[in-house]
Design a protein around this nucleic acid. Sequence first.
DNA 1: TAATTAATTGTAATAATATAACAATAATTG
DNA 2: CAATTATTGTTATATTATTACAATTAATTA
Lengths: 174, 174
Amino acid sequence: MISNSTTAYRQHDHHRCLKAALAQARNRCSARKARLTPIRESVLHLLWQSHRPLGAYKIIEQLSASSGKRILPPTVYRALDFLLELGLIHRLATLNAYIGCPFPDSVHSDYFLVCRECGSVAECSADSVNKAIVSTAERAGFRVESQTVEILGLCTPCQSTVEQPALEQPGVKQ
Amino acid sequence: MISNSTTAYRQHDHHRCLKAALAQARNRCSARKARLTPIRESVLHLLWQSHRPLGAYKIIEQLSASSGKRILPPTVYRALDFLLELGLIHRLATLNAYIGCPFPDSVHSDYFLVCRECGSVAECSADSVNKAIVSTAERAGFRVESQTVEILGLCTPCQSTVEQPALEQPGVKQ
DNA sequence: TAATTAATTGTAATAATATAACAATAATTG
DNA sequence: CAATTATTGTTATATTATTACAATTAATTA
Ligand SMILES: [Zn+2]
Ligand SMILES: [Zn+2]
Ligand SMILES: [Zn+2]
Ligand SMILES: [Zn+2]
């Protein structure tokens, strides 16, 4: 299992995440003879501001603000499509939002742990989950081609700062 | 593991699916003292036309056509919200579409097998998948509250009618 | 029963997310 | 260089979903 859950939800040297992501992006682009243009790099940079996903229109806003000129939707959506195709970012279907991929180089059918409190998202790849999905699908005669797995819940730090939903047994909190 | 994959993708007496769904809906509504009004029932009925999910605006179209009067978005979205809250239907995040739940009465954290060819969707609930997700999330210190699992691929009948996609590396159009 | 309240539906307007179509510009290739 | 290809700019529009408030219908109470 690979995951960035230990850092994503906690204080950490995020500058390293950013630097690593940009370096990987440059590698990947040159390997594929694809161009990491200023717009594309800016979008990737914005997505790596934090571990919270960003909607396309938030990106448009921020890019417009930082560049001083009005950036329009197709510009950003094209950059997002480019980054998605290279596997440098992911789209979260349940949030209509985008997030940088922390390990674009390892092949992974990934899933996402979305903290409903702080909004941060960690990406994981666990063979056990993948195997369970593929094998139960196979039992149903279904051939898996791709999967979308998005888990909503509470990250470790947020478990202590947020009260439990009232449905649980009383007295077991923390 | 419960699943409707054996029927969903094949010829079957779909009228039974519809009848069962409507009966379960009526039960559930009376149990909850909720009203299955004509609009709500119509929407549920439309979603049970087949095992293919329907977008909200398709429902609006069909409802407008069949009722002879113009049905507007809030009317349908309200019916959908009602049915979602009662667990009688599900929303598929990857498709922005809705589908009837074949077993609203059993508690299930479900996942969906979406056939990219025929468009039919089966719903499954497998403990193995659920356990794998919860246990790997726990290893990451994450407390799962809900999950969205949507699998894209080919159902059994479609596997024989459709050629395989050429296995290509994801990359960039040159 | 009539009066009151609550739930549901109707309607207009708009928000949020995403794409199509085509023109202009920049980079790459021969 | 010219020719070609890739990228970006721009306008318009598609698709999905929600807000706000009025009208109506059903349920409850006096
Ligand atoms: Zn970081
Ligand atoms: Zn958190
Ligand atoms: Zn059926
Ligand atoms: Zn199929």
